[in-house]
Design a protein around this nucleic acid. Sequence first.
DNA 1: ATGAAAGCGCTAACAA
DNA 2: TTGTTAGCGCTTTCAT
Lengths: 333, 333
Amino acid sequence: MDKQTVTIYDVAREAAVSMATVSRVVNGNPNVKPATRQKVLDVIDQLDYRPNAVARGLASKKTTTIGVIIPDLTNSYFSELARGIDDVAMMYKYNIILTSSDENHDKEMQVIDNLSAKQVDGIIFMGNQITDELRTAFDRTHAPIVLAGSVDPKHQVPTVNIDYVAAVTEAVSNLINRGNKRIAFVTGSMDESINRDYRLKGYKQALSEARIGFDDGLVFQTDYSYKAGYKLAKALQDVKATAAFVGDDELAAGVLNGLTDAGIRVPEDFEVITSNDTRFTEMTRPRMSSITQPLYDIGAVSMRLLTKLMNNESINEQTVVLPYGLKKRTSTK
Amino acid sequence: MDKQTVTIYDVAREAAVSMATVSRVVNGNPNVKPATRQKVLDVIDQLDYRPNAVARGLASKKTTTIGVIIPDLTNSYFSELARGIDDVAMMYKYNIILTSSDENHDKEMQVIDNLSAKQVDGIIFMGNQITDELRTAFDRTHAPIVLAGSVDPKHQVPTVNIDYVAAVTEAVSNLINRGNKRIAFVTGSMDESINRDYRLKGYKQALSEARIGFDDGLVFQTDYSYKAGYKLAKALQDVKATAAFVGDDELAAGVLNGLTDAGIRVPEDFEVITSNDTRFTEMTRPRMSSITQPLYDIGAVSMRLLTKLMNNESINEQTVVLPYGLKKRTSTK
DNA sequence: ATGAAAGCGCTAACAA
DNA sequence: TTGTTAGCGCTTTCAT
């Protein structure tokens, strides 16, 4: 039933050489006489031989496959990172097993074991709650791991990201400088350390630098979704906020449109600044001011770092922090 | 250096049974005495044994991995499909090797061979130019293939999609019914058969039903990008169009905003209708009217169909056509 | 420069 | 119900 598959053995026989020699030419080993190489190449061509990567993986203990764990494929922030990862993975001839975790801890655990069973050579993990359990899972995996666009408060796992604290501080200070005193802090769950330990810290820092008291009531935890943001309009008015820092662009788009649809003028009556500078920022009206970050590069650099780890190359820095910026568009004055 | 790996052999030895028995319990084969099973399970637990999927793949000729070829990860249309694929793949215990093709034919070819070499059990292909070369590549692959949200004019490859001709006809008729006579047709390259053979056909059909002549000048081929759409504003005015059918939501968002920024009121002076009903449609102002399609389901059903193909189950229909609809929002009158 | 042969870790007949 | 034994297709010493 199977399309008859031609193996290295067939090639060896036809070319009247040993399997070892065929293997050598396939793998570009220089220790082959040019004439032999050519003969083998011809037979390969003629037989349309294609090496079986699974067999190769078993024998060599390298699969040239890496695992990528992504919380949500449809979130631009992550898919932009993924594009960076994908590009350099391809450059280095790695395939990607892409698995969604849905930001679900059990699934993350399961997925790691699963990737491990598939003998991936490395793993790129996106997700913002590096629990101890997760660390354990990381540890018992033979494959090196790097965190992309995520954060490890304990600085144990190699990571590529930006300085979230500084970025948020700057964004919020920017809002403060224009006279805003009641600035809402809108983002995902505080269970995520990127929110709890980084963004919130930046927010508080900006407040304290301006000697503005912190008000719990201005902190909104919600889903990273347009809808969730849209629904926040009323609450935002109720707490008399005049501006908001938002941790996700789709969420911010929801906030923006919710406000607008409720008759609040942005930016005249309410300023909005968001975090990820994805394509959404250009699509809304007004267009959203944002922290800018090199999304593609974060992915690309993560993957590059992973290749080094997989080759046991020496690493200068476990954590690489890429530059961020601030882009003023029209959702702020 | 390697974390010492425990194999099925170790388990067999410790449990004082044969490898075959261990293999049986790992694979849930019922032909094992409960007591034996328990003993083996205990040892597995104690040794923390994890089956090597690569070895398994080599021996069984099944990798429980499928390949997914996607033109652009960051395009919502495709990432929504991917989510559907991913969910049911996970449900059926398949992993996904995700590869971007960048709508590049050579890359598509290469990627198929690559997936083939990795012995994937099946492939889901998204892309809209099924060339003969591609068909050849499909054929020489041992794995079954299904097209998701794409189109095979020759109806040779199993496919899940909607009736694009009917959907576009309806959308354009809708525009016509409101008095529009000069309706622009804005979409990607006419090299893609979904544009050339399906969407355009629907467009022409709607025109002809209304006895409106076809005008070449109203057809715009461009990238599927916001920017490309944004730049079209002037050209759209130059040809005196009063409405546009657009084949992609980001592209449509660009058209919409470009028009608005050029001082044209949508929908009063110009109506826009788009094709994919992704989340972008809700984010723009005005919100975009659109053809609706069950994006997630297209992905999910594709994957389900693929599982059947992989199990050699009999298939009722090679091509499954899911229902579409029309959603009026505020970019049309 | 080339070949022989022993695995890699597992599944799947086939026997018992 | 359980064990024995070939492989699966390739890489990789170790000889030559």
